[in-house]
Amino acid sequence: MNVKVAASPDYTLVTVEGRIDTTTAAEFEKSIMEIIDGGCTKIILDCTALNYISSSGLRVFLIVQKKMMSIGGHFRLSSLQPGIKEIFDISGFSAIFKVYADHDAAIKG
């Protein structure tokens, strides 16, 4: 798994690549929490290159969402691969996350 961060005045773009699973979820959580602890309240997570997620990864997504809601921030997801989208649908996560088709749509909100 790789996480890249690009901050702009309006939001922080986080790009995640690879797998968020039992062995990488903690590292992913740490990366995102550092961004939030650094004062960022708007995160767009580009999932174009995220090709696998398990319940350990979903757990982190929910933690981040709850955290963002508690500080009045937002956490937007863009460009989910079909397999990931399916897992979001099964888990009911499609209803609790703001999921956008692409980066531009996520910026517009």
């Binding site: 398990s54 319940s55 979903l58 709850k66 099964i90 609790i96």
Partner: peptide
């Protein structure tokens, strides 16, 4: 809703 969802517990369900 997100605020009421429990963290975890999805593994077996998946």
């Amino acid at each position: 809703a997100a605020e009421d969802r429990q963290i975890g517990g999805l593994g077996i369900f998946l």
